[in-house]
């Protein structure tokens, strides 16, 4: 999938300001951005539900406006876009039929989906009686019945407990293993870090960073480690680079190589009259990258 300079305005609100990025075959891509960054508009535009003012979206080399191109796409909206007053099987049959599945093919796919989401034994129960996590799984299954080559998920784990999140990501890993590309938006940075191959960070309708976690850290906060120290006593001379972090109420120093630099830092502190009572090494993560790029927490 190729997104090229996509613009979208809603009145005075410029939701997408020339967004561009690519999703490679078989890739798992996380779309991150603070609230209002344009993620949901982007997802709606990617699945053809919102027409961009300019720019284009290509899917396997063809515009998504061309007939049947969107059949390659599976969509899982953030809301529970299923019929709660139908059973699991009835929901699957409905969305399978709408994607053109019929007869044995439909039956086989429904059976596969029921097994995949682990709800075969509850196939004939009304979805409204299910837990939040189970409903989410049905919601996802309805988007993949037609074997899409690329799956768009808008916050697929919002409001579910850690166990259900794990279950959902196991399901997505299974899809990924058979070659499905996955694009997901999420507010859980750990999901993006651990479950995705590449991360695209958007803010104010633009892509502000694009790459693997290592790339992003390299481009932003770097590989340096922060060492937080609790020191007793009065330092006669402050070692170079050591400063006071009022937020954490500790001294902090940034080092390039822990193994080589940390012993000498500790020695210098001791020589200056201080005693290190405790230390904590902080490894930069996606949160630091996000904060560095957007100046905001993810949920702001």
């Amino acid at each position: 999938m190729s997104v090229e300079s996509v613009h979208k305005r809603f009145g005075d609100n410029h939701a997408l300001r020339g967004m561009s990025f690519e999703v490679k075959v078989g890739e798992r891509l996380a779309l991150l951005g603070p609230n209002g960054a344009g993620k949901t508009t982007l997802i709606r535009t990617l699945c053809g539900r919102s027409r961009p003012d300019s720019g284009q979206i290509l899917l396997f080399g063809k515009s998504i406006r061309e007939p049947n191109v969107l059949q390659e796409l599976g969509v899982v909206p953030q809301e529970l876009a299923i019929y709660l007053d139908l059973t699991t099987r009835q929901n699957l049959e409905c969305f399978g039929q709408l994607h053109g599945l019929r007869g044995k093919q439909l039956r086989d796919r429904v059976k596969w989906a029921l097994d995949w989401i682990g709800l075969s034994d509850r196939a004939n129960e009304l979805v409204k009686n299910f837990s939040g996590g189970m409903k989410r799984r049905v919601n996802i299954a309805c988007g993949v019945l037609h074997k899409p080559r690329i799956l768009l998920l808008d916050e697929p784990t919002v409001g579910v407990d850690p166990q259900s999140r794990q279950r959902i990501f196991d399901m997505l890993d299974e899809l990924h293993s058979i070659g499905t590309s996955i694009v997901l938006t999420t507010h859980h940075l750990d999901e993006a870090e651990s479950r995705c191959d590449r991360i695209v960070i958007v803010d104010h309708g633009l892509v502000v960073a694009d790459g693997t976690l290592e790339d992003l850290m390299e481009q932003t906060v770097g590989a340096k480690r922060q060492v937080f120290l609790e020191i007793e006593g009065v330092l006669v001379v402050s070692p170079p680079g050591l400063r006071w972090d009022s937020k954490r109420n500790r001294f902090v120093i940034t080092v390039d190589n822990i193994a080589e630099e940390l012993p000498s830092v500790l020695t210098r502190i001791q020589r200056s009259g201080g005693t290190v009572k405790d230390l904590e090494v902080h490894q930069p993560n996606l949160h630091d990258v996000f904060l560095h790029l957007t100046g905001k927490e993810l949920r702001e």
Binding site: R44, P77, E79, L80, A81, L98, G100, H146
Partner: peptide, 13 residues
């Protein structure tokens, strides 16, 4: 309201 319309219209419908 619950985005089912998005999903429906993203299918062949």
């Amino acid at each position: 309201e619950n985005s089912t319309l998005d999903r429906l219209l993203s299918s062949r419908l």
